[in-house]
Design a protein around this nucleic acid. Structure first.
Length: 242
DNA sequence: AACAGTCCCAACCGCGAATGA
DNA sequence: CTCATTCGCGGTTGGGACTGT
């Protein structure tokens, strides 16, 4: 025991000191879990504003937070970051989520990259609470071809129709179809932002505008109850039976 | 008003990948 | 190269808010 004490006292490297601190921390302080307090938030914000992100475990200790590095990282990325966008998922964002999910599956962080200010957690929650709810109502699996077709041929066109009409863009039925989509073009006609990359619809070789363009573009619509007001369950079921 | 059921979202957990010693 | 640590992702859960009876 005394030998260890002496070793601790003599340790010189940062790594050694961090290890000692960690041992002492584990012995003396209970790691906090659960909801964050305002005080904890402030500590994290202040520390990151001075020292930047990264090295979350040591950051947690240095900032005087009795939290795991993981917990700090999550709190920062999903809640405290200054560029976080709050509020309902807009209609444009819904279209992007549905489209990207059909291509990428449950790769939430990849999908989130196309939605500035939205976190993977938020998109994941949206999918689970809103989209899966509709699959449940229709009594089909969320990953089934049937449900994917519903999204592709009914849900997305309706969303796009609503976006276009809200933006007062001239709309014809040809503006959106899964096989021949000019949706992004129509939707981005009021947008001033620059195109940033990925093709919007129909696979890698097709060029119908860009998702990022849509995400960044124009007016932001409140889409909170959009799914529920686009159609009734009966209407969906009738469509499925066709 | 009280209770039960459902919804929603912040936070946690486990695992694999990346990085460093 | 190996092992330990850290990071990031996707799945899951707990509990407060909301809604219906």
């Amino acid at each position: 025991m005394n030998t260890n004490r002496a070793e601790f006292a003599n340790c010189k490297t940062l790594k050694q000191k961090e290890e000692v601190e960690e041992i002492e921390t584990k012995m003396e302080i209970e790691i906090r879990r659960g909801p964050w307090t305002v005080e904890e938030d402030m500590k994290l914000i202040n520390y990151i504003s001075l020292h930047g992100e990264g090295r979350w475990n040591s950051l947690s200790r240095s900032a005087g937070l009795n939290r795991t590095g993981k917990s700090c990282r999550l709190r920062w990325l999903n809640y405290l970051r200054p560029d976080i966008r709050r509020g309902d998922i807009s209609l444009q964002e819904q279209v992007i989520i549905l489209e990207l999910h059909s291509r990428l599956g449950n790769r939430w962080s990849k999908i989130a990259q196309h939605l500035p200010g939205r976190t993977d957690n938020e998109i994941k929650n949206y999918w689970r609470t809103r989209v899966q709810k509709h699959a449940k109502l229709l009594k089909c699996d969320v990953n089934s071809k049937q449900f994917n077709d519903t999204i592709k041929h009914l849900w997305m066109p309706r969303l796009v129709e609503r976006i276009v009409s809200t933006q007062n863009v001239e709309f014809t039925p040809n503006h959106y179809s899964p096989e021949n989509s000019t949706v992004a073009t129509a939707m981005s006609s009021t947008s001033s932002s620059e195109s940033m990359g990925s093709s919007f619809y129909g696979g890698d070789q097709m060029e119908y505008g860009t998702l990022d363009h849509v995400a960044n573009g124009g007016t932001c619509f409140n889409g909170g109850d959009a799914l529920e007001t686009l159609w009734s369950v009966d209407e969906l079921n009738n469509w499925l039976l066709q």
